[in-house]
Design a binder for these strands. Structure first.
Length: 388
DNA sequence: CCTCCACTGGAACCAAGGGCAG
DNA sequence: CTGCCCTTGGTTCCAGTGGAGG
């Protein structure tokens, strides 16, 4: 038998895919030539960043907006543009994009920045102060011949601040020729910063409102033209995707996902066209995939918590935190984790949308009770849990 | 306004990974 | 090589706070 990737059927499927010509534009990370409906915001970023072309450190900038409103894309777009302009103007500027879900502490961010700027620094072992020093040294020693400007994009900064405090902003904003562009999903992320740092941050804010259904339609049409073959989309497909995503707080990522999955369904079923029914089923499929994905990557202890919830649900019991803990210790026997820890797990699971909680107070002698309910399909959870 | 249970915040602790000076 | 100090992610421990029916 030959290589499975060169299998004839697979090969020919790939060659003459009736539906797709190129799936990449449907990925939310794809950066198009032009970002529709984000002109304003990009221009604002440019307005602040342009200072760098006069050898002046730009203001710090903060982008706010819900998921899928184009914050990351806009900042990357601005980044490309500025690099190009700086090259032409012979200005030395580096723009480093850091996703704070990957680098979750001040140490890690600074170390990563050092590494990217060509100074090797270990992931562990050094003091925070040593790493910061090494970082500062990069600017002082003038290793590059001309003045170096650094712009750091901190995506999902709220995660970092929540975990490790605002030290990172303190160190970065203190430095002379560093400018920070932070991206946050929450408007209130500044509560995580103390006032001293806040004043040295002194940032300009740019809001990314959710996309409306019409705007989503424009985005989808543009990407669809690049990724689908001509005339395979029924006329109502894009409007439907847009309307559904508009309901999900104008999430463009979700809209793209819907469209892509609808296309894949159509392809798998050998249909010549993508129709609205595909979209509706794509929605279920995305939901389904998301949950199995989440559950299978959950740490062991949290899976056990879910298992406990599942068995209790089956027994038609009203699940309280106390009961849940009982059932949980039952399941995990020896290496059970403490009661306190369970609350963190419950919160995390709720945040992921797998369960819901509702506390009620029952008065004297009864205390408070937390009613926990499963928010996803029982059988789905069961298969996900036991087929790992 | 008391009471009981559910919940939270913070410090402390632990083990694993790693650097560095002596 | 050895001992000591660092970060990190996970946990435990403890001292609270909060809410509403009685």
């Amino acid at each position: 038998m030959g290589n499975i990737f060169e299998d004839e059927k697979l090969f020919s499927d790939r060659r003459k895919n009736i539906i797709f010509k190129d799936k990449r534009p449907l990925d939310h990370r794809y950066l198009p030539e032009k970002l529709v409906h984000r002109d304003m915001q990009i221009r604002q970023i440019a307005k602040y960043w342009v200072d760098v072309l006069d050898d002046v450190t730009p203001s710090n900038v903060t982008l706010y907006g819900k998921t899928g409103t184009g914050k990351t894309a806009a900042s990357k777009f601005a980044r490309e543009q500025l690099i190009e302009a700086a090259n032409n103007a012979n200005i030395f500027v580096k723009i480093e994009y850091i996703r704070c879900t990957d680098y979750t502490t001040e140490y890690q961010v600074i170390a990563e920045l050092c590494n990217r700027l060509g100074r090797d620094v270990p992931n562990r072992g050094w003091t925070k102060a040593e790493v910061v020093n090494a970082f500062r040294q990069l600017f002082r020693t003038n290793a590059y011949g001309k003045k170096l400007h650094l712009i750091v994009i901190l995506d999902e900064i709220d995660i970092l601040l929540d975990k490790d405090g605002d030290g990172i902003l303190y160190t970065l904003t203190r430095a002379d020729n560093i400018s920070v562009l932070s991206i946050s999903n929450y408007l209130d992320f500044k509560n995580l910063i103390n006032s001293r740092v806040k004043s040295s941050l002194n940032d300009k804010e740019i809001i990314f409102p959710p996309y409306g259904a019409d705007q989503l339609s424009d985005i989808l049409s543009e990407r669809a033209a690049l990724s689908f073959n001509d005339d395979v989309l029924e006329a109502d497909v894009i409007p439907l995707c847009s309307a559904m995503a508009a309901k999900e707080e104008g999430d463009a990522r979700y809209a793209l996902d819907l469209l892509k999955n609808a296309g894949e369904l159509a392809h798998d079923e050998n249909c010549k066209k993508v129709v609205s029914d595909h979209v509706r089923r794509a929605k279920d499929r995305i939901e389904h995939n998301k949950i199995t994905e989440i559950i299978s990557t959950l740490p062991l202890q949290q899976q056990r918590v879910l298992e406990a919830i599942l068995t209790l649900t089956k027994q038609k019991e009203e699940i309280t935190s106390g009961k849940l803990y009982e059932s949980y210790t039952e399941i995990s026997k020896k290496d059970a984790v403490t009661y306190r820890r369970i609350f963190d797990f419950i919160n995390e699971l709720e945040l992921l949308g797998i369960i819901s909680t509702n506390t009620v107070s029952r008065g004297r002698g009864k205390g408070r009770t937390n009613i926990i309910k499963l928010q996803c399909d029982e059988t789905l959870l069961e298969t996900a849990l036991y087929t790992i």
